[in-house]
Design a protein around this nucleic acid. Sequence first.
DNA 1: CGGTTTTGACCGGCGC
DNA 2: GCGCCGGTCAAAACCG
Length: 313
Amino acid sequence: MDASSLVDTSLDLNPSSDRPLPLDTPKKEPSENGNLIVFGKKLSMKEESGALVEELNRVNEENKKLTEMLAAMCESYNALQSQLTNLMSKIPEKELSPSKKRKSESSNNNNNDNYNFGITGNSESSSTDEDSCKKTKEEIIKAKVSRVYVRTEASDTSLVVKDGYQWRKYGQKVTRDNPSPRAYFKCSFAPTCPVKKKVQRSIDDQSVVIATYEGEHNHLPPSQMEPTSGSSRRGSASLNPSGPTMTLDFGKTKPSGSDVARICSSSQPKMDSPQVRQYLVEQMATSLTKDPKFTAALAAAISGRMFQQSPVE
DNA sequence: CGGTTTTGACCGGCGC
DNA sequence: GCGCCGGTCAAAACCG
C-alpha cells in the first residue's frame, strides 16, 4: 500500500523484496568495481583477459537469472490473465452501464497514495439485471473502462499518454469539476477500433494525468516498441500484450522530495530500511530506463522471450 | 499532400 | 420545456 507498491508497480525490473532474489548479490559489486578500476591500470594481457572472462561468466550467470525471472513473470502473467478471463466470463455483463456518466469521474479518486499505477477497471456493478437487459449486450461489453494514472512533468501541458497505441485527438473540453481541459482520443491505428481514451490532469496533483480507456482494441498492438531512434517520447512507456492497458511510469527520474518523504516516513526512517533500499533500486532502474539503448535492448529481449514462451494457451 | 490537432458548433441525456 | 453539461463532429489550421 505504501512504498512497496510504489516500487512494484512502477517497474518490474527491480528485485522484489519478498523473493530471495539471486540477482541481488551485493558482495559481488565491489569486485566488479575493482575490475573496472584495475582495468584502467596497466595489466598484463593475461590478467586482463582473465578478468574479462570472469566478468563475462558473471554476466552470463546474471543473464540466466534474468531469463528465469522473466519466465516466472510471464507465467504469472499468463496465470493472472486466465484468471481474469475466467472472472470476466463468470460475471454476467452487468459491469457498468455506459450511460452512467454524471458524477463519479474525479470525485472518487479515492486518494491513491501512489499515482504511479492505478487501474480502476469495471468499477462498481450496481445496476439491477433488468436494467442491463434493456441495453444491448454488446454495448455494455464494449464499455470496458479502465483508468490509468500516469505521472508526467508538471510543466508538460500536452495531454499525451504514450501507451504504444496510436491515438487521434478528436475533441477537448473543459469540464465543470476540473479546471484543466479533458482531451478525447480515438485509436487511429485501426479504423474500426472502437477504443477511446480520455485524458485529464488530476485535480489535486497537476503532475498526474488520468487516462480513462473505454473499450478493447480489436487489433494487435502496433509493434513492440520499435528500437529505432529511441525517440519514444519521455513520460511513460508501457507493455501492452493485449487487453486493458498497463502503463508504467518512468517519467520522473528524480522523485520529488515528497516521494522520499513518503518512503522514509512510512515506517522506519533508517537509512538501510527496506523502503530506502527499494527506493534506491527504483532510482537505479529509472535511470537505466532513461537510456534509450537500454530500453531498446530490454524491449527486444522481452518481446523475443514472450514469443518464445507464448505457446502456452 | 495526407494525416493530425484545434476549436466552435452541435447533439443527446439529465435534472429541475 | 429549458438549461446545463459531457461527448462528438467537422471545418480550418497546422505540420512533417
